[in-house]
Amino acid sequence: MECGKKTVPLREELWTASGDQAGLIGSGCTLCGEIFFPKKKSAFCPHCQHEGLQDATLGSRGRITTFTMVHQQPAGGFYKGPVPYAYGVVQLPDGVNVETLFTGCRPDEIRTGLEARLAIEKLYEEDDGTEVLTYKFVPTV
């Protein structure tokens, strides 16, 4: 992130803080213990149907369970980041899987089982130069 650039998050309440302190925000059920990411606006738990979901800050390190390298532009014009890109699933020790983009390493270095840490990074830049930030994971290669 260049100094002085205007930044906006892709969506509010996906993560808290920044830098090393950053953590994803999920929802945890006070009855069954299930955890969801992203957080749910409603308190209703779709696992046990109890109305007891509360915000939970999730750990910032996990393990890669699966990944792929996408070589084509996704349909619909929703995705404005670079192509190709790597994405996959990271399992956090809190007991939740998170679908995520990967960054910070060569695509051929990504492996299942690798540890990965959370990073808040640019997804794309708006026409006026504003950087749109999102969460990604950096595989520890």
């Binding site: 532009q73 349909a75 995705y79 679908e99 995520t100 999102t134």
Partner: peptide, 26 residues
């Protein structure tokens, strides 16, 4: 072109998770 699936939440669409071959690749 590729299937423009809307069976995703908005953030997932913006993060590029809606590529059917990629979904199967995982």
């Amino acid at each position: 072109g590729p299937i423009p699936s809307t069976a995703f939440r908005p953030t997932e669409l913006q993060m590029g998770f809606n590529v059917q071959p990629a979904n199967y690749a995982l």
